[in-house]
């Protein structure tokens, strides 16, 4: 049961969410294994954000379920978790990187405090150790550790995203959700961030579900890609196959609309 190679970390089964008569997303099914990076691509309104919220248990499905293999090896239905268990997942085994860093950070708290919060939330009570861990993580996301006591308001957009990543990874999560992690950043800053994320994902063996409208992000980060349109997954598979040999008309349109560098 606890074979980490053959048991998915997260499974979506017939997952769907309606908003009254309007479809948020429907009939989503996939397995995600440890160390896998899945990109969910599509345009605004395609249902990819709804899906991300369903997968991360922040929204209750109107159909289907999401199963997650907890650290103790038991696979649980996210819908059956208590609020306490769900929150515990969110501050230990999961990370969530928001497009808008002000939603993912405490803007009134120093960078060190932002990184240390999860440690304190799970009971770390040694200031020196918390600070050492914060310094270590700032270094790993390439933030000058002498700026540990500055608030994120003093940071650039790219630094804020990197701080957000450090804040999420400090508890060694196994699964990280990313919602347009490079959105709104300059192209050169995007490249550096993607490069960093790619390295961390490989080094730590993270499973990642990244929502993006940017196919270059999908290509650079992900192993597999799901293409969403009108609330449904219209094509999914190996990222390079979806992008190089797209089957569906919509995917062909998406791929043909990007500029090749």
């Amino acid at each position: 049961m606890t074979d980490t190679l053959s048991t998915p970390l997260l499974s979506a089964e017939n997952l769907g969410r309606d908003y009254g008569a309007r479809i948020g997303c429907r009939d989503v099914a996939f397995d995600l294994f440890e160390g896998e990076v899945l990109a969910i691509v599509g345009e605004s309104g395609s249902g990819k954000s709804t899906l991300l919220n369903l997968l991360s248990g922040q929204l209750a499905p109107t159909a289907g379920r999401v199963a997650y293999r907890m650290r103790d090896g038991a696979t649980r239905d996210l819908g059956s978790l208590s609020e306490a268990e769900r929150r515990f997942l969110f501050r230990t085994d999961w990370g969530f990187v928001h497009q808008d860093a002000t939603r993912g950070l405490r803007m009134g708290v120093s960078a060190g405090g932002n990184v240390g919060e999860r440690l304190m939330a799970v009971g770390e009570r040694h200031y020196g150790r918390i600070r050492a861990a914060a310094e270590d993580w700032l270094g790993r996301v390439e933030i000058d550790t002498t700026r540990i006591d500055e608030k994120p308001t003093a940071y650039s957009g790219g630094m804020r995203q990197r701080l957000q990543i450090a804040r999420n990874l400090v508890t060694a999560p196994r699964l990280v959700f990313m919602d347009e992690p490079t959105g709104g950043l300059d192209v050169s800053v995007q490249a550096r961030l993607l490069d960093l994320v790619r390295g961390l994902v490989a080094d730590l063996g993270l499973a990642v579900i990244v929502v993006t409208h940017d196919l270059a992000v999908a290509r650079l980060l992900s192993h597999r890609t799901m293409v969403m349109k009108d609330g449904r997954v219209i094509e999914q598979g190996l990222t390079d196959r979806v992008l190089d040999d797209p089957r569906e008309a919509y995917t062909q349109l998406l791929v043909s609309s990007i500029l090749q560098p």
Partner: peptide, 18 residues
């Protein structure tokens, strides 16, 4: 309700850092 008090220590952390 959930005894989710990590934030309280964040405040104390900030004090020591400052």
């Amino acid at each position: 309700a959930l005894a989710d008090y990590g934030l309280m220590h964040v405040k104390l952390y900030e004090d020591i850092a400052t």
